[in-house]
Simulated assay, not measured.
Amino acid sequence: MTPRRQSRMAVILFVLLGISIAAGLMLYALRQNIDLFYTPTEVIYGKNEDATQKPSVGQRIRVGGMVVAGTVQRDPKSLNVKFDLNDIGPAITVEYEGILPDLFREGQGIVAQGVLKTPTLLVATEVLAKHDENYVPPELDAQMQKVHKPMGIADLKGESERDRQEKAYASQETQEGQQ
């Protein structure tokens, strides 16, 4: 190998080594935040029921589940709210101070982000409410009705214009065939 190739190879290896070290340090620094999302069952039992993969007290996490009916407790003097959150297993308690989203209600799916104070208590800094994926805003629904009805697309309660025309044509043919 020529000295010029050796120096190029040394530079390339040095750059690759530097990138590898930087990526390793970044992953090491973010190791606690790589897997943020948990369900209430995973908070209590750990991911895949492995106790070594449980979030630790003081860790910042996101927990998603359903608000348990009858557990929402609002403080009348402040914006503090306390409720239970569960999935198919055990429930955890979530405490939140602030204005809840409009879609928040019992039996609704939510995602709460905050700090785990005890193994079953999350003090949330943010609460996000999920909505049904079939939701259509009223303005969009009205616009869709204007656009799609003239095209003959059926509404959910009836039949399309094309279906009516085909039935009329078929009945005409049967009448002509009977004569």
Rank of each mutant, 00 (worst) to 15 (best):
residue 29 A to L: 11
residue 119 P to L: 03
residue 78 S to A: 03
residue 31 R to F: 00
residue 131 H to Q: 15
residue 28 Y to E: 14
residue 113 Q to K: 12
residue 156 L to F: 09
residue 115 V to E: 08
residue 159 E to M: 12
residue 34 I to G: 07
residue 98 G to Y: 05
residue 149 K to F: 06
residue 116 L to S: 00
residue 24 G to D: 10
residue 101 P to H: 02
residue 82 K to W: 06
residue 132 D to T: 10
residue 35 D to N: 14
residue 133 E to D: 10
residue 29 A to P: 00
residue 109 G to H: 10
residue 24 G to S: 15
residue 72 V to E: 04
residue 109 G to P: 08
residue 149 K to C: 01
residue 74 R to E: 14
residue 51 A to E: 14
residue 51 A to Y: 10
residue 159 E to S: 11
residue 61 I to V: 07
residue 124 A to F: 03
residue 110 I to R: 06
residue 96 Y to V: 08
residue 58 G to I: 03
residue 160 S to A: 12
residue 26 M to P: 00
residue 47 K to V: 13
residue 137 P to Q: 10
residue 147 V to L: 13
residue 145 Q to E: 14
residue 127 V to C: 05
residue 58 G to H: 02
residue 76 P to Q: 09
residue 88 I to G: 15
residue 24 G to N: 13
residue 114 G to K: 01
residue 126 E to A: 11
residue 51 A to L: 11
residue 141 D to M: 13
residue 120 T to L: 05
residue 156 L to T: 13
residue 162 R to I: 12
residue 92 I to A: 04
residue 36 L to P: 04
residue 150 P to W: 05
residue 126 E to K: 14
residue 87 D to A: 04
residue 138 P to K: 10
residue 81 V to S: 15
residue 56 S to T: 14
residue 35 D to T: 12
residue 42 E to V: 00
residue 108 Q to L: 07
residue 71 T to H: 02
residue 65 G to N: 03
residue 29 A to R: 12
residue 153 I to S: 04
residue 155 D to T: 06
residue 28 Y to C: 08
residue 92 I to S: 03
residue 136 V to I: 15
residue 85 L to T: 02
residue 103 L to R: 14
residue 65 G to Y: 02
